[in-house]
């Protein structure tokens, strides 16, 4: 049996894009935005590929939940080197709980030894899905990973915490979420892009998976945040410190 690594991904606006709320205040205007694989998920894809380079039996399966437009990003992951992709068809983005429901059903069917995903998606910044999924499956979790040393039965994972680097051991199967410094994702090579054309993207419906969406998070409004400050440029350090003396209670 191969060592299957499942890499769930999310399609998000490129972080260089300017985020504008639509006039009705209920959505983000995506008409001018380009989309990418969530950067943390791209790190997870890269780590899965490195794992495959270290071990012989690894199969890397990338998952996306979304409409047909998602296939471009899945194709990018295949061009990086993933073996195959699954797109779960959904018209609307799902909240973390429902994503975890979809992924746990996929995990039940595919029996991965490792689920490797980004620690958070840079659109809603929730950082919940990996933990929900690990809980639903009853698997160990190692979140915010900055190093993974895998072995036959599990891995030692260094994770970035508020108080320094913590090292955990987990046994397979496990959920690991990737932090920024785990690796730097490769770009797709030309041969990779050509090879990706021949790789399968399997489509599945929520119905096929037996998933009935039960929304947990209802978005009722979005408000643009703008800086209220106007900078005062000062010429000298003396002037700067005078301003701070007048406007803070620190002196």
């Amino acid at each position: 049996m191969s060592f299957l690594v499942l890499v769930p991904t999310k399609r998000v606006p490129d972080t260089d894009g300017v985020i504008r709320v639509t006039p009705d205040g209920l959505d983000v205007d995506t008409s001018h935005l380009s989309f990418v694989i969530n950067p943390f998920d791209a790190i997870a894809v890269e780590e899965a590929l490195r794992l495959r380079e270290r071990r012989e039996d690894v199969e890397v399966v990338v998952v996306g939940i979304g409409d047909e437009a998602y296939e471009d990003e899945l194709r990018t992951a295949l061009a990086m080197g993933a073996d195959r992709a699954i797109r779960v068809d959904a018209a609307e983005p799902l909240d973390p709980w429902n994503v975890a429901c979809v992924l746990s059903e996929l995990a039940r069917r595919l029996e991965p030894r490792l689920i490797l995903m980004g620690k958070q998606a840079v659109d809603d910044d929730s950082a919940q899905t990996g933990q929900f999924l690990a809980a639903k499956l009853g698997w160990p979790q190692a979140t915010f990973a900055s190093r993974i040393d895998d072995s036959e039965n599990g891995a030692e994972v260094a994770r970035e915490t508020d108080h320094g680097i913590e090292t955990l051991s987990v046994t397979w199967p496990a959920v690991i979420t990737a932090d920024l410094r785990l690796n730097e994702p490769r770009y797709a090579s030309l041969p990779g892009i050509l090879a990706a054309r021949g790789k399968p993207i399997q489509e599945m419906s929520l119905q096929e998976l037996g998933i009935e969406i039960q929304p947990r998070v209802e978005l009722v409004g979005l408000q643009q945040v703008a800086s209220q400050r106007t900078v005062r440029q000062v010429e000298t350090v003396t002037e700067l410190l005078e301003c701070l003396r007048e406007n803070t209670e620190l002196f």
């Binding site: 909240d95 973390p96 709980w97 975890a100 910044d125 929730s126 950082a127 919940q128 990996g130 933990q131 929900f132 999924l133 690990a134 809980a135 639903k136 979790q141 979140t143 915010f144 994770r159 970035e160 915490t161 508020d162 947990r216 998070v217």
Partner: peptide, 23 residues
């Protein structure tokens, strides 16, 4: 909001039905 809570309350959220808001 901290790496501690994201890790543990996130997992607790998964055991408790996932009605969660972060940060």
């Amino acid at each position: 909001s901290s790496t501690f809570s994201r890790d543990i309350l996130g997992r607790a959220g998964g055991l408790l039905g996932g009605a969660m808001a972060s940060d």
